[in-house]
């Protein structure tokens, strides 16, 4: 037997090195692929249009991704836990409309609203989004409804709240603080970009450096093992659903101010955008892998894509198809990356 072993040694040893490099790449495919995509898109649009690569346009892109970004932060928590929240855009819309409903509107606005002081209106709107998140949390953790279905119901409930409150009308006024944050700027930098950056940074700190953040990753990585380790899995999942609703609420309030109006269905595109941002960024749909860094890259990929396609003067209907194809490609990479990482060398569990 020793003879064969000796004969084999030369073939196995040199093979180890390229193997190692390949493995390094393999384990980081999740992080590398989105970044490479971003670089590629930037290079592509920069070559295609001289107006793309300018400071002004960067500011545009940043503004365009801010509302999506705040929503995507909440979704990142949810998806890291291997759950989903399809109600983000709807909750955002509802929160924005609740805010407008409790703000004094112009006489021309025909809504039976209930004007309250700005702070109270903001408080009620935040409380509203908290409640919607709590209902999600209750349905998923106590009743045991899969989050996919539960939040689908929430999508409808949010739309219902919007419809009831504005009855087809459009409201314009929001409390002054929110109007400033949504539309004003600190010097040249729009407040909404600053808020989005702060939310992303805070979420990153929570996920990376706090005990709760670790629990989020571990619950997503192996829910049963987390439970057998004494982690209160239900509480963690309830918490991420509420975090998601609160982020949506904030995005909704700022969005209403940013767009200058509060009406039904104005956030409809944001559900797909925010889910795309998280997934394109490389956070695993199976939970436990990824994070805010990935979401940030995902946001830029979407932002650059949406903005760049405007610069190259492309058929706006084709734009929709292209976005769909990019999302599909991201999903394929996402699942593929999971499979590669899921088969550690020779290890079995």
């Amino acid at each position: 037997m020793s003879k064969e072993r000796g004969a084999l040694a030369p073939t196995t040893v040199p093979a180890a090195r390229p193997g190692k490099r390949r493995q390094w790449l393999r384990l980081r495919l999740r992080n590398i692929a989105p970044f490479a995509t971003l670089m590629f898109l930037v290079a592509l649009f920069a070559a295609a249009s001289p107006s793309f690569l300018s400071l002004d346009n960067l500011a545009n892109i940043l503004q365009q991704i801010s509302v999506t970004g705040i929503m995507a932060v909440g979704l990142t928590f949810v998806i890291l836990c291997a759950e989903i929240d399809l109600g983000v855009a709807s909750v955002a819309n509802a929160t924005g409309i609740i805010l407008a409903f409790f703000t004094a509107q112009d006489a021309s606005v025909n809504i039976a609203n209930l004007p309250l002081p700005g702070v109270v209106a903001i408080g009620l709107a935040v409380f509203g989004s908290f409640c919607l998140g709590a209902v999600n949390a209750f349905g998923i953790t106590w009743i045991g409804i899969p989050s996919f279905i539960m939040t689908l119901a929430m999508l409808q409930i949010g739309a219902g709240i919007c419809a009831m409150l504005v009855r087809g009308q459009i409201a314009y006024a929001v409390p002054k603080v929110i109007a400033t944050l949504g539309n004003g700027g600190l010097g040249p930098v729009p407040w909404i970009v600053i808020v989005a950056a702060l939310v992303l940074a805070l979420a990153h700190i929570v996920l990376t450096y706090t005990r709760f953040g670790r629990y989020v990753y571990m619950v997503g990585g192996n829910r049963e093992a987390a439970e057998y380790s004494g982690v209160n899995v239900r509480a963690v999942i309830a918490a991420v659903m509420i975090i998601s609703a609160l982020c949506s609420g904030l995005a909704g309030m700022l969005g209403v101010a940013h767009f200058g109006s509060a009406q039904q269905d104005e956030f409809d595109n944001y559900l797909l955008d925010s889910i795309s941002a998280v997934v394109v960024g490389g956070t695993s749909l199976f939970g436990g892998q990824g994070g805010i860094g990935n979401t940030l890259v995902g946001l830029f990929v979407l932002g650059v894509l949406n903005n760049g396609l405007d610069h190259v003067n492309i058929d706006s209907f084709l734009k929709i198809l292209i976005r769909g194809l990019i999302l599909l490609a991201a999903l394929i990479i996402n699942v593929y990356a999971q499979r590669l990482k899921g088969q550690p060398e020779a290890g079995e569990i």
């Binding site: 670790r214 990753y217 571990m218 990585g221 192996n222 049963e224 093992a225 987390a226 057998y228 380790s229 004494g230 982690v231 436990g288 892998q289 990482k341 899921g342 550690p344 290890g347 569990i349």
Partner: peptide, 18 residues
Amino acid sequence: RRSMLFALEPLYKNMSIS
């Protein structure tokens, strides 16, 4: 073991979680 451990996470996180 599958229901006790996190295959993709490093050893120290597996040990500290509980």
